[in-house]
Computed example of a mutant assay.
Amino acid sequence: MPDWARSYVKFVEALNFRIGRFAMYLLFVMMAILIWSSITKIIRVPAIWTLEMAQFTLVAYYLLGAPYTFLLNTNVRMDLVYARLRPRTQAWWDVFTVFALLFYLGVMLYGAIGSTAYSFETWERNPTGWRPYLWPIKVVICVSFFLMILQAIAHLIRDVAVIRGEEI
């Protein structure tokens, strides 16, 4: 494989590894928010921001963790047949299916960018009592789709290397 391909794979995987490790801790942030929500309800002074903030944190946790799970190959697969294939045949199948994934992620990113741009233009807010701005979570969604596309391309490069009998 060319040096640029190796460098790309190493860079993207290191980036997604670090972001994924950060995203793991968002679960604890969400738990703290929900504990705070419970405490404020017990003392009869409920905070109006806790439910939405927990939801936003969960979205960030889930979407920023997706490239990390793809990197570690721990994503859920229906591998009744796939697991029995040789690594080279698996790589061929992955090369075939990654284009469907890239198309899907491209469409999702396109929609997310449009929604985020609208959110910035109109200073969109959630129609609840707290009324938080929506652009921060929409930016996180765009970043996560972009990182997933980068990881899918890195996965494609790794599969091509396996097909060629090379290591990255």
Rank of each mutant, 00 (worst) to 15 (best):
M1R: 13
D3G: 12
A5G: 15
S7V: 12
Y8L: 02
V12H: 06
A14W: 06
L15K: 01
F17R: 10
G20T: 08
F22H: 08
A23C: 03
L26C: 13
L27E: 07
L27V: 08
F28L: 03
F28S: 03
V29D: 03
M30R: 08
M31F: 06
A32M: 03
I33L: 00
L34C: 00
S38L: 12
S38N: 11
I39P: 14
I39R: 14
I42W: 13
V45M: 14
V45S: 15
L51D: 05
E52D: 06
M53G: 05
Q55P: 14
Q55S: 06
F56K: 07
L58R: 11
A60T: 05
Y62G: 12
Y62L: 15
L64H: 07
G65T: 10
P67C: 08
Y68G: 05
T69H: 11
F70G: 07
L71K: 03
T74V: 13
R77C: 01
M78E: 13
M78Y: 13
M78W: 12
L80S: 08
R84S: 14
R86A: 09
P87A: 01
T89S: 12
Q90I: 03
Q90K: 14
A91Q: 02
W92R: 06
W93C: 14
W93D: 13
W93L: 14
V95K: 08
V95N: 10
V95P: 10
T97K: 10
T97F: 11
V98R: 06
L101P: 07
L101M: 12
F103K: 08
F103Q: 10
L105W: 04
G106Y: 11
G106A: 09
L109P: 04
I113L: 05
I113C: 06
G114D: 09
G114L: 07
A117L: 14
Y118E: 14
T122L: 15
W123M: 11
E124C: 03
E124G: 00
N126I: 09
P127G: 01
R131V: 08
P132N: 08
P132C: 06
P136S: 05
P136G: 02
V139Q: 09
V139Y: 01
V143C: 01
S144W: 01
F146G: 10
L147R: 04
M148Q: 11
L150Y: 00
Q151L: 00
H155F: 13
I157C: 01
V160R: 10
A161L: 12
V162Q: 09
R164V: 04
I168L: 10
I168V: 07
I168E: 02
I168S: 04
I168W: 04
